[in-house]
Amino acid sequence: MPAARKYGFPIRAIIDRYCADNIPQVPARFGGSIGRSCFVIAMIHPLDLPSPLQWCWLEWPNSRENSLEVLMRKVIATDRAPKPIAQLSQATVCNGIVYMAGVSSRDPKTAKVIGDTIEFQVEQTMQNVKAILEAAGSSMENVLRVECFLESREHFPALNAAFLKYFPKDPPARAVLMVPFFGLEGMLFEVIVTAAVDQA
């Protein structure tokens, strides 16, 4: 963790304190074991990372003589979906979870919002979501949660129809918010998706 070392954070002192052999059992899904794994919140200078906080999973599988294994985030970028128009990523992956930025019906080639109807925009948005998920090693079947933003309550039928098409079985959790206007002209719909990465 170069940024932490750069600013002199006592990582070993943190490890020595919180990775003692008497700490509680770490959940198996994190690959932990008693006294050998821990969560550490490293304070990072804002100039080094977009966020001043960075969560890291530190695992010490055998002994304190072994090196630390740090799981860092992975940035996802694909030409099959519209590129961001601001300083952000299409999606990031950390610890097997895909965190997607807001996705709309922007055309992957022109980056412009396309479609005059809510039905068209929802369909194009789902295609963009699918492309980003596949680039991240995930799929529509692995979607955990979808946050939807609609311009009108009258657009619910189109949204529900899309969920029946793309999530026919065991649909993800969903939240829907009404917004008076979007940041881009002509936009009627936007989603934020969280999904799990496919298991190898």
Rank of each mutant, 00 (worst) to 15 (best):
R174I: 14
E147L: 00
E190Y: 00
N128T: 12
K130W: 03
N142M: 00
K83G: 04
D198G: 06
P168A: 13
P180G: 11
A42Q: 06
E141C: 04
P180W: 00
E59G: 04
L71H: 09
R153D: 15
I192K: 08
E69Q: 09
G137H: 08
K169A: 10
G35H: 05
W55M: 10
T78D: 04
M43Q: 10
M178E: 14
M43H: 11
S67W: 07
C56Q: 12
I11S: 07
K130E: 15
I14G: 10
A28E: 15
Y99D: 12
I34D: 03
V129G: 05
P27C: 04
V103P: 00
G96C: 05
A196R: 15
F163T: 08
S152K: 09
I11V: 15
A91Q: 03
A81F: 00
P82K: 06
I14S: 07
S51L: 06
V98R: 01
R64P: 11
G8S: 14
Q124A: 11
L71A: 14
V193W: 05
I118A: 12
L68D: 06
I15Y: 02
D198A: 12
I11R: 02
C19L: 14
D198L: 08
V122H: 03
S105K: 01
Y7P: 00
I114W: 01
E134Q: 13
I15T: 05
R153P: 00
T194K: 08
P27T: 09
N62D: 15
L177G: 09
P180D: 15
V129N: 02
I114R: 13
V113L: 02
M126T: 03
R80M: 12
R106H: 14
N22E: 14
I114D: 03
R106T: 11
T110P: 01
F30V: 15
V122Q: 02
L150E: 11
A111V: 04
L49H: 12
L58R: 01
G32W: 02
C148N: 13
F156P: 01
E147W: 00
P46Y: 09
Q25R: 09
D79Y: 01
E123R: 04
V70I: 15
R5D: 12
P171I: 10
M1I: 10
I114N: 06
V75D: 12
S104A: 12
L88Q: 05
M1Q: 08
A173D: 13
D116C: 06
